[in-house]
Every structure is written in C-alpha cells, then in structure tokens.
Amino acid sequence: MIVYGVALLGFCLLVGVIGGDLIGQAIGVQANVGGVGIAMLLLVVLASKSNKRIQLGPVTGQGISFWSAMYIPIVVAMAAKQNVLGAIEGGPLALLAGIAAVAASFALIPILSRIGEPAEPLPPLAEETDSEPVSNG
C-alpha cells in the first residue's frame, strides 16, 4: 500500500526531528542538530533492500519515490519564497560577507576531497532523471 511508504517516510522524519531536538537540548544549543540527517539514515536502514526483516513491496516504495521525485518542485517553491529582497537590501557588508564565505567554502571542497580514499564520479545522467525517483536503484 502506498500509504505505508508515506507513513514510513513521515515516521523517519518525526523520529529524526525529535532526536535532533533532543541532541540540541543535550548540548545546550537552541537548534535542531542533524534531525533530517538522522531521519535519512533511519530511512536508508529501514528501507534497504538488504534488510531481511523489513521487505518493502514495490507499491510501498512508490509512496517514498513519489516524494523523492517531488523534491525539485518543492525546491523551486522554496526558491520562490526566499527573502531575496532582504538579501539584496542587506547592503555591501552582508553581500560581501556572504559572497566571501561561499567562495572560500567552494575553494576548500577539492582540498578536503583528497582526504581518504578517492571517490568515483557518478555515471552521466540519463535524460529526464528528475521525473524519475531520485537514485532509486
């Protein structure tokens, strides 16, 4: 049933966010620490094909894949609700601080990538990937 997939996804996010809030409280921070990350790991473990105890039916998987495919539309909506005016009106200091932070961080990526074993580039994207579930096997 599709709803099982949606419910499993919702369950993972709720557990993750509650966990992230608890970690935040435990270390005395007024923020959620890694809630979405915890949720993602939980989903990967629970929905993994190698998980012997939980075998998701293909239809159940569709309940998750649908939301994965809705990711880009949701990100477009997210872009459309950003306070772009506020960013531009922040003045030269805000602009420069933001730009410099991004430039420095971009520059550090290739350097950090050398640490540990090298990683293989992903194979080229097939056409129309984002109308398909993202990286679903």
């Binding site: 996010l13 993750g16 979405v36 790991l41 990967v44 998987g61 949701i74 997210m78 609700k81």
Partner: peptide, 20 residues
C-alpha cells in the same frame, strides 16, 4: 510547499535507495 516541512520530507525521501 516550499516551507521547511515539505522540504525536509522530500529531502529524507531522496535518501531512499541511497547507499549506506
């Protein structure tokens, strides 16, 4: 639709099929 709730829900969904 573009708020944190749906954004996080969809982000978690993208992990489906990702490699642990």
């Amino acid at each position: 639709l573009g708020g944190a709730m749906f954004r996080d829900f969809a982000i978690v969904a993208t992990a489906f099929g990702a490699d642990l």
